[in-house]
Design a protein around this nucleic acid. Structure first.
Lengths: 122, 122
DNA sequence: TCTATTACTTACCTAAAAGAAAGTAAGAGT
DNA sequence: ACTCTTACTTTCTTTTAGGTAAGTAATAGA
């Protein structure tokens, strides 16, 4: 049995799935893989996320030690988010998701034009 | 732009994340990677899922052509679920999640005893 | 003094996900 | 005739996630 944050799991996949069972966390990680970002950047980049949800999700990720929050004593405020070591290790997971998405679109969807994301992480 | 089921995405990761943004689908896939299963088997194996939720999630996965549903004309009923080609291709995603989980537990959790899942897929 | 900027918080509300519990259909076995 | 089994469906309720909109703090610059 695995014990993480007072929860028990009988499989390490369950640990991972339990952390990332929402709409936003992996999306945030995906963007942070391209480099550190401020709150505002994430708010603008992560598709349609609201400020409140972003705050909540960032807090959860920080508590789980997947991202790091660095506050600068400036005005207006500056807070930079970056991936921890654990966070960076999610890269292969997202790369496989990226690949699967492309494959799935080829079978069950279509590409409508060329405005496709150019992530530098691949 | 990618178009899948009348939805638009600008990144293939978004396609994947949008399909698997719930608590259950990837967990179901994970179990099906070990072999085809009947409804009852999944209900017993997938941790704590209710019948209703299982029905809903299986239907969603079937609509998205990630699993296949085979009905046998028997009494009592027999319905066997299996992964489609797209479904099977999720294996690398889940393998990376499995690895990440183990790594994460080592940094942020602990292993309490030896009752850990022995999946044959790795 | 007034406005702009950033990173939030707060209060309230809605929609979606999920759970609980019971019911159904269709025979097969006793 | 009665029970058992499987794979559901149905209804009703609860929980959770997430959205909206407004407010706040601190200071720099016009």
């Amino acid at each position: 049995m695995y014990l993480v944050n007072e929860k028990e799991y009988n499989c390490s996949v369950a640990v991972t799935l339990d952390i990332f069972n929402d709409r936003w966390k992996l999306s945030i990680i995906w963007h942070l893989l391209n480099g550190d970002m401020r709150f505002k950047d994430l708010h603008e980049t992560v598709n349609e996320i609201t400020q409140k949800t972003l705050t909540v999700k960032l807090k959860e990720l920080e508590e789980k030690k997947i991202i790091h929050r660095e506050v600068y004593a400036e005005v207006p405020p500056k807070v930079v988010y970056s991936l921890t070591c654990s966070g960076k290790k999610l890269k292969p997971v997202l790369q496989e998701m990226y690949k699967w998405g492309i494959d799935y679109v080829q079978e069950c969807g279509k590409i409508t034009n060329d405005h496709v994301c150019k992530s530098s992480i691949l």
